[in-house]
């Protein structure tokens, strides 16, 4: 059986979670269904609700096993599916500053795509990005929407000690790093925009589903913004 956005599969996990699958491959309709159920669940949580984790094509729902169980949670999630989708406000658009000059992989990406470095930059700036999910490390937001022309497979081996604030791409995804980490992605820029904001009221710049736009800044503006 293959899950679809309208007929998802509910999988019971351990004593405390349900995974709702809306598709099996990267698919916008399945992702939209994830975001719809996530919003509906936040607005109307089930008994014993602990947290929900949206990803590309599935939503994890964790609950308190002392107050509810899998069948009750699945019933509730199913009722959210058939509920009329409420009119919801359009996704927020967030701006991320990026300085491309001096980035380690800009020339390599240009070479592999047959573009000039400037054309790689313009292609990256032209993308319509959206936050598909967080993962890997705190604040690592996976942005979908890298234009076709600059989509590359990952490097064969990860490179260590990539600084926080690196703007990197792999396939259709773009990511702004928040920690020093190894990565096999292509680093085409650096950003002074904090994703971990240090603001207790809003500790992360993005919510899953937000639109993102990159704005180019010069090396001098980068230094000034740090």
């Amino acid at each position: 059986m293959t899950p679809t956005p309208s007929v998802p599969i509910f999988r019971a996990i351990a004593e405390r979670a349900v995974l709702v699958e809306f598709g099996i491959s990267l698919d916008q309709a399945a992702h939209d269904a994830v975001l719809r159920m996530d919003k509906a669940l936040v607005a109307n949580p089930c008994l014993g609700f602990r947290e929900a984790v949206p990803a590309f094509v599935n939503l994890l729902v964790e609950f308190d096993p002392l107050t509810t169980d899998h069948p009750a949670v699945i019933d509730h999630l199913r009722s959210l599916l058939s509920a009329q989708p409420k009119v919801h406000k359009p996704s927020a658009e967030r701006e991320v500053l990026v300085c491309y000059e001096g980035s380690p992989d800009l020339n390599a990406v240009a070479q592999q795509t047959g573009l000039s470095p400037e054309a790689v930059i313009n292609a990256h700036l032209s993308g319509d990005y959206a936050v598909f999910m967080y993962g890997f490390a705190p604040g690592y937001a996976y942005l979908g929407g890298v234009p076709e022309a600059i989509r590359l497979d990952r490097k064969p081996a990860p490179v260590r000690n990539i600084p926080a604030g690196s703007v990197m791409i792999a396939g259709a995804q773009c990511l702004v790093t928040t920690l020093v980490m190894p990565t096999g992605w292509w680093i085409i820029g650096r950003s002074p925009t904090p994703i971990l904001t240090q603001n207790p009221a809003r500790p992360f710049l993005f919510d899953v589903g937000d639109k993102v736009r990159f704005r180019r800044i010069s090396p001098a503006e980068y230094e000034a913004a740090l």
Partner: peptide, 10 residues
């Protein structure tokens, strides 16, 4: 390659 999915402790 399955699309990245949420992970639980355990």
């Amino acid at each position: 390659s399955i699309p990245s999915e949420p992970i639980l402790r355990g």
